[in-house]
């Protein structure tokens, strides 16, 4: 290979990005690009895995067999999504075990929404509708992310995610059409999940330290505030259609801009939850850690069994 200096490599790299040529695992890339992707993809993977916990809480108490089968399938999908993403992060040279240990030590974050408790069955509806709905807004543009393996994983995830949102909205619709108690339960779930769902898009653009670089590298295609606005515009009419009220007294349609205006987000709450002080942070991480520790003997036994069988075969 010809000797090429770093700035020339960087120039060629950015040229590829600007021409929408995907970057693949063995291609040269700046260290910061690699680091940014490892951070983003592993945190995305952790969010999928931790995201199984609030919903897993209701599998045994689903109101009927159909709902139970659907919820099981959804939670299994989240496990699958986590695995697509860990697979993508390994293509960057990151170690899967290390990224998981970083989650358990608190070094790596995950989506703060999963630190809220799921108190009633209606929360399964609100999560599917709002949380998966917000995730879809985030993930659809990621299907065109500059890093090939991440973009391909997102294509699979998005195909599967739309069932998640629909099943959640179906739960909400059914409750909203039910008895006054059921409708109140749906409204209560919307009240509790609305604001945390808006926080899922991250800090306002002015306060988001990674946005500009990620846009230049075409990891991100829209800013946090753009995505949040798209979500509000899409979701408010859905709430109205099923007779539920979005818990925001400042919410109003702006005829001129063609967008909804909405109230101020409580960022203090957001940062508290990110820092680990949400209602369920400790519980979520303890559960993940316990699963890893208590599963150790199973992983070791499987390895020993595989080695024994390989030896027998070669003998």
């Amino acid at each position: 290979m010809k000797e090429v200096n770093i700035s020339e490599l960087e120039r060629r790299f950015q040229e590829k990005i600007d021409n929408d040529i995907r970057i693949e695992p063995k291609d040269w890339m700046p260290d910061e690009y690699r680091k940014t992707l490892i951070r983003q993809i592993s945190q995305h993977a952790h969010s999928e895995v931790v995201g199984m916990l609030p919903e897993g809480n209701w599998i045994t108490r689903a109101p009927n067999l159909r709902r139970k089968a659907v919820l099981l399938a959804k939670v299994q999908d989240e496990a699958g999504h986590g695995l697509y993403l860990y697979s993508a992060v390994e293509t960057l040279g990151a170690d899967r075990e290390q990224t998981i240990d970083d989650l358990h030590s608190g070094k790596a974050k995950y989506s703060s929404i999963f630190n809220y408790p799921t108190l009633t069955w209606a929360d399964m509806g609100a999560i599917g509708w709002l949380v998966d709905g917000a995730a879809i807004m985030n993930q659809v543009p990621l299907c065109r992310c500059s890093y090939g393996p991440y973009a391909r994983a997102m294509v699979r995830v998005c195909k599967e995610e739309s069932f998640h949102q629909r099943q959640g909205f179906e739960i909400m619709t059914t409750l909203a059409k039910g008895s006054p108690e059921q409708k109140a339960m749906a409204q209560d779930a919307l009240n509790r999940f609305w604001w945390p769902a808006l926080m899922m898009f991250g800090p306002n653009d002015a306060d988001s330290k990674h946005t500009q670089q990620s846009m230049d590298w075409r990891i991100k295609r829209h800013t946090n505030d753009e995505l949040r606005q798209m979500f509000v515009d899409a979701t408010v009419p859905q709430a109205e259609l099923i007779g539920l009220t979005v818990p925001d007294p400042d919410l109003k349609w702006n005829e001129e801009t063609g967008h909804y205006e909405f109230g101020a987000i409580n960022w203090d709450e957001f940062w508290e939850v990110v820092k680990g002080n949400g209602p369920c942070n400790k519980d979520r991480i303890d559960t993940r850690r316990k699963a890893k520790e208590e599963g150790l003997w199973v992983r070791e036994a499987a390895m020993a069994h595989a080695e024994k069988r390989a030896k027998r075969k070669s003998a």
Binding site: L83, Y84, S87, A88, E90, T91, R96, P149, R152, A153, R299, A302, M303, H305, A306, R309, A310
Partner: peptide
């Protein structure tokens, strides 16, 4: 389609 971790080919 991607990769995964497993103890042996069967798994």
């Amino acid at each position: 389609v991607g990769s995964l971790r497993a103890a042996d080919a069967e798994m």
